[in-house]
């Protein structure tokens, strides 16, 4: 008992004034070690690998939107040269086909965007083209969301998004690259 009382009497407290310093040090330590590098990019889902060559499916050529990028980074869209800047609008027109043009896609569900590049195509050019194709789909989805629900695609519920995606499925098929301009 006596010992406890003796302890009571000497109220020894560790000085809490330096707690702030400790906290600051920890803070600085974590600030230094953690990297605040945020990674963003275009998310894609690659097709599964199969050893068998793909079946030769006869597709109506009106439903195929072929985009070729050669080793000089030139663009050939449905056999016509095109600038990257026009690609987005043209893709949208092809998929939605608002005037039922017999040369454009039957329906959005049947539309296939086929992208083919050379091994010598620069990554920058490829990304520009891929980005435009994705942008075309994103814009279509956004427009549909506005028409159907009066809000942006991002703000739609999962089911609403799925409904739109089912009607306008994202099909960007990548053919095997040609190798005319491969660098050493």
């Amino acid at each position: 008992m006596a010992r406890v009382r003796a302890k009571d009497r000497m109220k020894n407290e560790v000085n809490a004034g330096s707690m702030a310093d400790i906290a600051f040090l920890l803070l600085i330590f974590f600030l230094v070690t953690t990297t605040i590098l945020e990674d963003s990019g275009i998310l894609v889902k690659l097709p599964e690998w199969s050893d068998q060559p793909p079946d030769d499916v006869k597709l109506n050529s009106r439903n195929i939107y072929s985009v070729l990028v050669n080793a000089n980074n030139d663009l050939l869209v449905r056999k016509n040269p095109m600038a990257v800047r026009e690609l987005r609008e043209d893709t949208k027109l092809f998929i939605t086909n608002p005037n039922n043009d017999p040369t454009l896609a039957d329906s959005p569900t049947k539309a296939i965007v086929s992208l083919k590049n050379d091994r010598g195509t620069s990554y920058k050019a490829y990304m520009e083209v891929y980005n435009e194709l994705r942008a075309a789909y994103n814009e279509i989805w956004d427009e549909q969301a506005q028409i159907r629900y009066g809000k942006n695609y991002e703000d739609c519920t999962k089911a609403e998004q799925k409904g739109i995606r089912d009607d306008f499925p994202l099909v960007i098929s990548e053919a095997e690259s040609t190798s005319f301009g491969e660098e050493g």
Partner: peptide, 29 residues
């Protein structure tokens, strides 16, 4: 991937990823 790189090596990597069953890919930009 660096923007100056040509698609050859990228295509090879993509093929390897597909063969390994790693299908979720992000092209950092």
């Amino acid at each position: 991937v660096d923007s100056d790189v040509t698609m050859g090596i990228v295509t090879d990597v993509k093929e390897k990823l597909r063969k390994s069953g790693q299908l979720k890919v992000n092209y950092s930009a």
